[in-house]
């Protein structure tokens, strides 16, 4: 097993230990997580449209969801891209105070999103047990809320962490990945909104 002898070596001691973006292994892990969750959501959208083909009226027997909170939340989601982008930029530069600010603002946005989300459920105009359509929109919103809650908690934890003296290079890259995951949450939110509020009315 020991092959230590006089031989050629490939010296890697000069390589960096803090990298961002696609070079980072955690970035890849985050992307893979996003693929899993994206696949799950895609399957849920597919189920929604499958149910659509099995019913003559849509939404069947219930009112379409009220738009107010959904649209409001959609706008807040889109606005929250700004602090996410800011956090990303500052983290990559190693700017701790910038990153702190970005994380705090992002966490506030997340809290607003969650608050609005609670109202969104009541605006669905149906109980989950009413019929398959109702169960599906509840599940769509529920699964996305789980993503939202997860990333909100992560953001809060990172924001708290950012105010300690434990922020090394890997933490900065975690701030970076967190923002990327937030982009994903926003993206899924937009598509989900389109399905729940748009497709329900248009189809």
């Amino acid at each position: 097993m020991e092959r230590v002898s006089e031989r050629a070596v490939l010296d890697v001691s000069g390589l960096p230990s803090v990298v961002f973006g696609p070079r980072n292994v955690v970035w890849l892990g985050t992307i893979l997580f996003m693929l899993i969750e994206g696949a799950m959501m895609a399957m849920l959208y597919a189920s929604y449209f499958y149910y659509r083909t099995r019913s003559t009226d849509w939404p069947p027997g219930v009112m379409p969801p009220a738009l107010t909170y959904g649209v409001a939340n959609g706008i807040v989601f889109l606005l929250s891209l700004a602090p996410a982008w800011w956090t990303r930029k500052k983290s990559r530069a190693g700017d701790i105070s910038g990153a702190r600010m970005g994380l705090v603002v992002l966490a506030i946005f997340g809290a607003v999103n969650i608050a609005l989300r609670v109202y969104e459920f009541s605006a669905l105009n149906c109980e989950w047990s009413a019929n398959a359509y109702a169960s599906t929109v509840w599940m769509l919103l529920g699964v996305h809320s789980a993503h939202l809650a997860t990333d909100f908690i992560e953001t809060v934890v990172l924001a708290v962490l950012a105010f300690t003296d434990r922020v090394d290079g890997t933490r900065f890259s975690d701030f970076d990945e967190n923002s990327m995951y937030w982009y994903f949450v926003v993206g899924v939110a937009v598509v989900t909104d389109f399905v729940i509020y748009g497709a329900t009315r248009l189809l």
Binding site: I36, E37, A39, M40, M43, L44, S47, Y50, Y51, R54, S55, P60, W128, S129, A130, N131, A132, Y133, A134, S135, T136, W138, M139
Partner: peptide
Amino acid sequence: MPAVMLSSSMLLLDRTVGTQFFNPAEGGD
């Protein structure tokens, strides 16, 4: 795997909280 996690979660929800994903009488399939 997400597909089976989804179908088994839907089944579980049908059984525990009364969703109608697979109830033929309520648009389930």
